[in-house]
Every structure is written in structure tokens, then in C-alpha cells.
Design a binder for these strands. Structure first.
Lengths: 190, 190, 190, 190
DNA sequence: GATGAATGAGTATTCATTCAT
DNA sequence: AATGAATGAATACTCATTCAT
């Protein structure tokens, strides 16, 4: 039994990553998924709901990973490294997902869902909380504003992904985490 | 005599920053500009051309500033500080512009446009070149890949702007450059 | 099950014959066909494509008739009479079609179309070829240029239809073929 | 002093013959006439009025010629020959005018003018009247319906012009009148 | 659940016409 | 009279969504 919802999510990732959400037709997603348009609407409320589900899906993956990381007894840098490795590996394995995570912003017309916004808010928030703890533990210089630092880190991640995609350079995704960690470590520690 | 093109650009910035490019109707831009729809098309090829012009306009501003900075004899950090101060001041004075610069990505349907892409490419490129020079001059640790570093810096800037907008916190735009410079200085220098 | 394409063709004939192609709105055709506007575009590329299809449809009818006539062993005058009877009968049964065939000329904006032109070219061409054969067989005075004669005949036909429509005089369509044949016979024979 | 109205009429003939009335923009006519769009509206009520004026202008030319012909004491065939020679000469000298006379039909949106219709009605009407007189004088077989005959003649003329234009064959315009007269003479006389 | 033809609201764009200069 | 920028009504066409099969 093929999971139709998964089929459609994957097809949507493929098409939307190439054309962007607004230039993607539901009919194209249906075609890519080898499914009738009507079928999409058996699994999704509307077109926006598909994009939303993509973000929800990716956010959940990352939340699960973060939870796992949290259970281990690691310092801030070790945690960050583990998360970056996970995030970049995911994108390396499916560049199209990376494109979407980096390019799609939310201007919701209709209320209801909003995992895009949740993704874009929650990851920096977690970083912020971790930074606060790290400051408490003296791992990080207390003079820095954790909110700003968190968004610098999140922005850096997005910036690298964006560049790697533009260059079609998967290798950059391999090298970048280490370099980013090094810069941040030196930059934020003392 | 009012410059109609400027009038329309400003109106478009206002509307598009709130609703996003795809959810903005030309009629709304016209209304905001106190101009007839048809008038827009006397100055712009199509809707996309307006967004394009916004990016072109902002890019040119920044290029002019960078040129001025280049003429002074400054080290990398002084240059970066000057540019950041300029960029953040601009956005502070017109948050709407910041929203657009940070949110709009390019999925061009019709050719002829593409200052969006130019903006998103040129700024990191300039940073990259400056980093290379800085490495030459020993201002920056040579072990870092200037391409990656440049995109970390650009990503950081975008990340801060995005957060400041989300929080509607102009104050963040004041504090952030100093903090960012400090982190990067320590992080990249040695 | 109703054939939607046929439904739309007939509706378009009705509306376009009254208002002309350029003054006909797709929404009017849709209304006449008891169909949504969008449905039209499931069957036709664009508005021009509808007109084109009308000409294609009528041309095919006449080509089929001409083929049938050709298979019988008739002289030029008998053939011409049969064709005229068919053509005028068709128009008598649907004046609207006659109006379109006589009034619409082609100034194509988009390529891909052009059965209008084909209709306006092919009928005279066939007449020309038949005239050439008739000259060979001595049925027609060889001093006449068959190209000119063919277009005189085609023009005569169009002229009669145009007048009959203007007068709303179906009777004229009954009488005309006989009279036209008589004139041409005497005029062209010797 | 250049007569602006004439300038515009000529420009309109040029452009409309190529693109057809509905595909011709007033701005194109203005450009061809080396005149501002606004100027057109100093001389013409609206776009339709230009086309109308073209037909009016050409109709008047032909009416003048017919008047002149009438003053001479000629039989039907001599008159017809003179008129055909005039009409075809005119078109030979300005093919663009011929294209318009043959292609443009009237589907008036707004009431008011209608020289197109007048042209398309009056010429056949005059032919009809002349035919009636000719029948009276025994120049033409009385068994023919003069209305039908008149429209056959008018249709023939239009048919020849249309073909000559399609072939870009001015020569055809030279040869055709003689041939047409000959056919008609034999066809209609007895 | 799956299908895809039918729907019709929604909108970018055009272009005849106007009118202030 | 001449200009051409400004106007905004008009409309072809699209495409997300529905629903009968």
C-alpha cells in the first residue's frame, strides 16, 4: 500500500522547490505524484496546506532530533554540532527540501495553519534557549544578547544552505558546519 | 511635478511588504499611490518589474555606499561596520523595505527582470572579495573559506533583520551590528 | 452525455454571427452554451481557436461533399451545381454560419490557428483546378484565366450569401444557384 | 500646410490594412502619421470614425466617377467597363485601400456613422439600378433577377481584389476587368 | 477512495479616450 | 491646434477547488 499523502508531499517538494509555491499548480503536483487533482484534496485542505505540511514534516524531524540530542548530556557546542550535522545531512539528501525551507516565507491569506511560521520561529527560539542555558553554565560570554545570537546562528545556517543550493555545491554542505561552529565558538565563547 | 515612478515604487514597497508580492494586486498599489492602474504600466513593464525595480533601487543605494567606503583606507572590520551601520539605518528608516529585501525570493516567470537575484548574489560576492583581501592582509585567519564566511555574514544580517521585523523591534537593529561585528571579529580573526 | 465542444461551437456561431468575432465576449459564448467560461478553455486554446474551429468544421463538411461529387462522373457544370446546392442549403439551414463564413477575415495574432485562411484559399483553389480540367475537356473556353474565373465564381457565391443575409431573404438562397450557374455557363462556355 | 486629417487617414489605411481594424492601435496610427494620439481626436470622433471616414472617402471617389460616367451616353457594358477600370486602377495605386475595402465588415457597436455599410450597400444598389435600366433597353436578358445579378457582379469584383491582394499580383488587377466584362457580357446578354 | 471535467471568482494587462498644459 | 501622460473600464484567461461518477 502506497501512502498517498506521502506521495503527494514528495511530489509537491519536487515541484515547489523548482517553481516556488505561487508558481506551482496543483495539477503539476498531481501529475508529478501520478495522482488525480481531486485526490490531493482528499489529503489536504488546500494548496497552502500542502506547503504547510512540508514544513510541519521537516520541523517534526528536527524536533525529534533535538529531543534526542537533549537527552544526551552535552555542552552547547556539541549539541549545536549534532544538530547542524543532522540538518545539513537532511538537505544534502534532498536538496529540494532545502530550497523550500530557505525560500518560502509566509504571507498567509487564510488563517488556520501555519507551520511555516512555526518552523521559522521555533528553531531560533530553541537556539535562544540553549544559548541562555549555555550562558548560565558559563559556556558562552554573558555579554551577548541570546536573542540576537540565536538569529545570527539561524541566519548563518539559512545563508549557507541558500548559497550551497545556488552553487549546486553539496560539498559546501559538508564543510560548512565545521567552519560555522569554529567561527561561532571563538566568536561567542569569550 | 511629482515623479510618478518614485510614487509607485514607494506605494509598492508599502503594500508588498505587508502582503507579499504574490498577494499584492496592482490595483492596490495604484490605490496606495493615488494613481490609476494604467499609470503603473506607463512606468513598469509588469507587476514583477515593480518588485525588480525596488531591488534595483536598494542595491544601487548600497553599491554607492560600498563605493564610498572603499575609497577610504579602512581595514575589513571598519568597512564591515560602516556598511552594516548604513544597511541597518536604511531599514530602520523604512522597515517595509527591510521586509521585502528579506522575504522576496526570485522565481521569475518572465525574463528581463532579475535584480532580486542580483541583489542576493552581489552583496555576498562583495563580502567574499573583501574577505579574500583581508586574508591577504592577515586581518583574517586564512584557514576559513571566504565563500562560506561571506555567506555566513550575509545570512546573519538577513537573520537579524528578519527577527527585528518579526518582533517589530527597531532597537534590535541598533544593537545588532555591534554584536555581530564583535562575534565575527573574534570568530574570524584568529 | 452532451458533447461540450459541439455545444460551444454552436453557441459561438450564434453569438459571433450577430456581433462579430471581436465584439463577442467569451462570457457571452459561455452563457449561450450554458457552460462556465472555464469550460470553453478545456476545449479551445483561446477565443480565436473557437472561430478557427468553426471554419475547420465547415470546411470539412464541404470537402466531404466535394469528394463525394468528384466520385460521380459529372461535367464541370453538374459538379458546380451540386456544390452550390449543398453550400446554399447548409447556409439556409443555419444562416448564422453563413454570416460568419462571409464576414470573418483573418488577422491572426497568435499562430497555431488559421483554418479561416485555409477555407478562403482552398475553395477557390479547388474551383480553379476543376476549371483547368474543364478547359482540358473543352467544357470551358480556353481563353479564360482559370485563376481569375475561380475567384469570380467564389466571389459571386460570397456576394450572394452576403446579400441574402443582409435582406434576410432565404428565398434568394434558393433562386441564386440556378441563376449563377446560368450566367456562368453562358459566360464561360464559349 | 499639411492637412492633418488626410495625414491621419492615409496612416490609418496603411496600418489597418496590415493588421485589421481591431488589431490596430490608435497609437500606431498616430505614430505612422507622425502625430500625437490626441491629435487624432481633434479630427475624428473615435477609432471607428477613422475607418468610417476611409470608406466614406473611397465611396465618394467612386460616386464622383459614377456620376461622370452617367453623364456620358453609354450602354451598360461601357459603363461597367469604365467603372471597373477606375476601381481597379485606384486599388492598383494603393493596394492597402483595396485590402480594407475587401476585408472590413461592419459590426457597429455604437450607432451614429456607417459608411462601411453604405459602401457595401450602395455600390450593389447602383449596379442593380443600372441593370434594371439595361433590361429595359434590352441590353440584358430580362429573365435575370437584377438584384441577384448585381450582387454577383459586386461579389466578383471583391473576389478578384481579394485574390490579387493575397497573391500580391497587381497584374491580375490589370487583366481581370476585361475578363470579367467578357464573362458577364456573354453570361447576361442573352 | 480516486477521478478529472466543470466551475467561476479573481486579476493582470491593454488601450481607446480625455484633458491639462 | 497639438501634445502625450493619465485614466479606468473592459476582458481574456487561469487555476484552485468541487463533486458527480
Amino acid at each position: 500500500m502506497t501512502d498517498k499523502k506521502e506521495l503527494i508531499r514528495k511530489a509537491a517538494v519536487e515541484v515547489m522547490s523548482k517553481k516556488g509555491f505561487y508558481n506551482t499548480k496543483t495539477s503539476e503536483v498531481a501529475k508529478e505524484a501520478n495522482v488525480a487533482v481531486g485526490t490531493i484534496y482528499n489529503y489536504f485542505k488546500n494548496k497552502e496546506d500542502i506547503l504547510n505540511y512540508i514544513f510541519k514534516y521537516e520541523l517534526e524531524k528536527r524536533m525529534k532530533n533535538l529531543k534526542k540530542i537533549k537527552q544526551q548530556n552535552l555542552n552547547f557546542w556539541e549539541k549545536l554540532e549534532k544538530f547542524l550535522n543532522f540538518h545539513f545531512k537532511e538537505i544534502k539528501e534532498n536538496i529540494a527540501v532545502g530550497e523550500i525551507l530557505v525560500r518560502e516565507k509566509d504571507f498567509p491569506k487564510k488563517e488556520g495553519s501555519d507551520s511555516i511560521n512555526e518552523y521559522l520561529t521555533m528553531i531560533p527560539e530553541i537556539l535562544e534557549n540553549e544559548l541562555k542555558d549555555a550562558i548560565q553554565r558559563g559556556e558562552i560570554n554573558e555579554s551577548y544578547d541570546p536573542e540576537i545570537s540565536a538569529n545570527i546562528i539561524f541566519g548563518s545556517i539559512q545563508g549557507i544552505v541558500e548559497k550551497a543550493i545556488k552553487n549546486e555545491d553539496k560539498n559546501m554542505l559538508m564543510k560548512a558546519p565545521e567552519e560555522l561552529i569554529m567561527i561561532l565558538k571563538k566568536g561567542l565563547r569569550e
